[in-house]
């Protein structure tokens, strides 16, 4: 089977910082994924998150994480590819997940604000959050202001 990607490494003493060039005829999803994986590996503000599924460890890109939440005293990571367990507490993950992308919505949950599809507010007065992947969660009212501010930040592009 032919490897779809040809990877070459050139050792150049003049090149102090590594330069990565992707030569392609069009910008496909695979190319996008490669870019994001490289960014995730090199950008310390978006470190990869360790998740476990079926006792196998995987490094998860923050871009793919939808929600991180506590369920039955366990920390779960819901990504676009499925649900993983985390061995780190939610408070630790909160310090690692990038604040441009992630926001706390309750004592039990941190969500990727860019994966939110819409907010819903029923007559009972519960703030529901619907995500692009179809999952639903709820936000504590005391975090609504912070969510509002985060949305304003990404809408106006005032990001770090």
């Amino acid at each position: 089977m032919k490897n779809p990607i040809d990877i070459r490494i050139e050792i150049d003493p003049k090149c102090q910082d590594p330069v990565i060039l992707i030569r392609t005829d069009q910008k496909t999803q695979t190319v996008e994924d490669i870019i994001h994986m490289i960014e995730a590996c090199t950008d310390s503000s978006y470190p990869l998150i360790t998740g476990y599924r079926d006792s196998e460890m995987e490094l998860l890109s923050q871009r793919d994480i939808v929600r991180v939440y506590v369920e039955a005293r366990k920390v779960r990571i819901r990504t676009i590819d499925g649900i993983y367990d985390s061995r780190k507490p939610l408070s630790f993950l909160e310090t690692v997940l990038n604040t441009d992308r992630f926001i706390r919505i309750s004592r039990f949950e941190i969500v990727n604000i860019r994966k939110i599809s819409r907010f819903d507010f029923g007559m009972a007065g519960t703030v529901h959050i619907l995500f692009d992947d179809g999952s639903v969660s709820w936000a504590a009212r005391r975090y609504v202001r912070a969510i509002q501010q985060a949305l304003n930040r990404i809408e106006t592009g005032k990001e770090e």
Binding site: R118, F119, D120, G125, V127, V144, R145, I147, Q148, E155
Partner: peptide, 22 residues
């Protein structure tokens, strides 16, 4: 109840508006 309900409903509408624009 009414004051809190209307206040949060307004905030949620604003948030949905911001989300839609973004």
């Amino acid at each position: 109840w009414l004051f809190q309900y209307l206040s949060y409903r307004r905030k949620i509408r604003e948030m949905n508006h911001d989300l839609k624009i973004w």
